[in-house]
Design a protein around this nucleic acid. Structure first.
Lengths: 222, 222
DNA sequence: CCAAAAGTGTTTAGTGTACACCCATGC
DNA sequence: GCATGGGTGTACACTAAACACTTTTGG
């Protein structure tokens, strides 16, 4: 009944939006770390590390995020736990989290010696089963953004509806009707107009919004 | 960077349908195990055990299921991983699975010395954070059954639409319009009429169905 | 005035829900 | 015939999508 020899690691899939190098349009990126130890030396892998004794699982993921990118995230969620016995000679069980980083923050991320950002849809062949994990995380992100207001975690506190829509379009990689998107976004009642508009555009100035900080829980409504 | 002292366990929330002892209606049940060791000796807890070196995570969950109930399951899915540092003096990280067991099988489950079945909505105060886990699993089951055809895993291969509906009603604890349920169930195209009916009822004999074994994937359709 | 994006209105198809009604069986 | 659940039809409200149209800015 010994379980000796099983290593427990926490990895994190970190998503951020940046311009696509060729088309210039906003696209999904994620940072990877080059392995400097066997197995899979030289291969790119998800950032992560062994779980510390006194560390929350989510704290470990947050530390990885901070260590590899110098950034913090407003959104961190557990993705899945992977642990096929054949992942490597020394068996490793990985508890994987995913995080969203704001675009303005991601722009000033520090790229360490062995850290590099890749287009989420063009990652190279990774170490271990990390390609599977990235695909899994992408599916979760694309699924969740359609029914949950997580797009906000890619944005600054104040934003226009066009910016919010651009996040959805970049993640889902498809054009969205601006008129219908506006109505659906406003129908959620989570958006609050700031009363100000964004000037300096070469067209009609769009209104600025922020997300509701404390929406009244249903059980407390009159 | 040592992670020594962290124990990795796999637990399983096992759901089955049985008659409610008071109302007689079908209700959700789950088996719990009485702890025979510190910490929390005497308390009820989710069945589980340490992960073996050469064991798949899901295999460990399946073994737990077999060991505690003598049953097998057609549906097993990873739920979440829990691991707050204060869960016990000896830190334990639990990877939790959930499983569905067919009603006819559950009826002949073996109840071991320290195993007892409880109504899913009336579990006692459990060891560790297992109450949280049970609530989490219940939410997942109730959420998933509304958009995924998992109700089938509670049923025998052949069943009537009334039986399928009864599963939904028992899990969600609410009455469902039979006419609308029928239409929605048939609209999924996953149900195949066997051509036979169930006789012996005191009313019009209902048609029997089975679930489509190999629905043609979309990419293969002409 | 023109271009461009913000923002509004309208039409259409589809879907979930409530409920009236007929059907087939045992008693 | 009658009770009971199986099974069908239908009207209504709500939602998503497509798209025409008006508004407001910079140049």
């Amino acid at each position: 009944m010994k379980e000796q020899g099983i290593e427990l690691a926490v990895s994190t899939v970190i998503f951020a939006l940046r311009p696509h190098p060729r088309s210039g349009e906003t696209a999904l990126w994620l940072p990877l770390v080059r392995r400097i130890r066997e197995p899979h030396v030289g291969r790119w892998a998800l950032p992560g590390g062994p779980l510390q004794c006194d560390e929350e699982l989510s704290a470990s993921a947050r530390h990885t995020l901070e260590r590899t990118t110098g950034l913090t995230s407003n959104y961190l969620e557990q993705l899945y736990s992977f642990g096929a016995p054949d992942r490597s000679p020394q068996r490793v069980v990985s508890i994987v989290y995913w995080a969203l980083v704001r675009a303005d923050e991601a722009a000033r991320a520090i790229d360490g010696e062995n850290v590099e950002w890749f287009l989420a849809d063009e990652v190279p062949e990774l170490a271990f089963d990390h390609n599977t994990i990235v695909t899994y995380a992408l599916n979760r992100l694309r699924g969740k953004i359609t029914y949950s207001p997580i797009a906000r975690f890619f944005l600054s506190p104040e934003f226009t509806l066009a910016e919010l829509r651009a996040v959805h379009e970049a993640v889902l990689r498809k054009k969205i009707d601006p008129a219908n998107f506006r109505r659906q976004a406003l129908a959620t009642k989570t958006l609050v107009p700031t009363g100000t508009v964004l000037t300096g555009t070469s067209h009609r100035p769009p209104a600025l919004y922020r997300f509701q900080v404390n929406p009244t829980p249903e059980r407390l409504r009159p």
